[in-house]
Amino acid sequence: MHTHERALLTTQSTLTEALQQLDLEQRKELTAESAEAIREQLRAAERNLADLHQQLGQRRQRLHDHHQGLARHAELAATLEKQQQEAKRWRQLAELIGSADGKKFSEFAQGLTLTRLTELANRHLTRLTDRYRIARNPHEYLDLLVVDHYQADSTRSMSSLSGGESFLVSLALALGLSELAGHKTQIETLFIDEGFGTLDADALEVALTALEILQGTGKMIGIISHVEALKERVTTQINVRKGVGGISTLRVVGFGESE
């Protein structure tokens, strides 16, 4: 009897545990669908997961390509900046040189030479007269003006000079030009054709003194003139005498005579 009671109690306890387990499982709200339906859902979920993995791979590749694009863009931006700087230098050079015919660059180079010529000519002009100074025209690239120190340093055109003044300025420019050219080519001879007749006695004395100083540096100075006063200062002369029938004779003074 006790055995059956113990067995009954054991059975009742097992049943209670089973009911409790059943209640617990029911509370988990497990699906009531069949196993085949669950398997189909699983297969669909796996396919969806595969698609998601594929999309993830594609997006990772796009992200990688994007980063490479950014690096390439930065490289191209740096190259573009360098090329823009180079182009800027070429534009500045083009502005200095000008068109393909080289006119603007030629004027620029001539302007540098003219500036140097002006400096050299003014050194000689200072010895000839203290009144004038040669200056470049700021409005005309290759034009020269004179500054008149006796007229409050007023600036005027070369054409406004008198004959004697023009001769002194021209002589200073000629001497400056010979000195400028002498840096690369040795110029030993300078011929001056007329102009002395426009000078008064004082100006003539100054001009001849300057030429004698220049001659003392080893240069040979030739003067072509009809001014009688020059005969007293120039010891070596070639006199030209006009004859009949278009025939002229030459007479060298200072080294004997020659016809």
Rank of each mutant, 00 (worst) to 15 (best):
T189L: 04
H53I: 04
E75A: 15
G195Q: 01
S178T: 13
E212L: 10
G163I: 02
L117Q: 00
S154P: 03
R47G: 04
R133W: 01
T3C: 11
T198E: 09
H67G: 09
F196C: 01
T185M: 06
R27Y: 06
S248T: 10
E17V: 07
Q58H: 14
F105Q: 03
V147F: 01
I224P: 08
L22F: 08
T31N: 06
T155D: 07
E194Q: 15
I238D: 03
G102Y: 04
T217S: 14
Q92W: 07
T16P: 04
I224C: 15
D130R: 11
E140F: 06
K28I: 00
R116E: 03
F167K: 01
E205L: 05
I134D: 00
Q237C: 08
A100C: 10
Q12T: 11
H2K: 11
V240D: 04
L70M: 13
A210C: 10
L168H: 01
T235L: 10
T129P: 04
R39G: 06
K88E: 13
E179T: 01
Q54I: 05
R60D: 09
A207E: 00
L8C: 10
M158L: 15
F196K: 00
T126V: 10
E212R: 15
E194T: 06
E81K: 14
I213V: 15
L112N: 08
R72T: 11
L199A: 02
H226T: 07
L142Y: 08
E232S: 14
T129R: 01
L114W: 02
S13V: 11
A100W: 05
R72F: 05
D23E: 14
R123M: 05
V253F: 08
K242V: 06
G216K: 07
Q110H: 08
A45V: 09
S34Q: 08
A44D: 13
R123H: 12
E165F: 02
L168V: 03
G254S: 05
R156G: 11
S154W: 05
V253N: 13
E228K: 15
A77T: 14
A109Y: 07
E212W: 07
Q54P: 04
V252I: 15
V234F: 01
G98M: 01
T249K: 12
H4R: 14
A203G: 06
Q237L: 05
R62P: 01
A87V: 09
H73L: 15
I192F: 02
G69S: 12
A94N: 13
L9S: 12
E259S: 12
L24S: 15
E165W: 02
H66P: 01
E17H: 12
L190C: 03
S162T: 09
L96G: 09
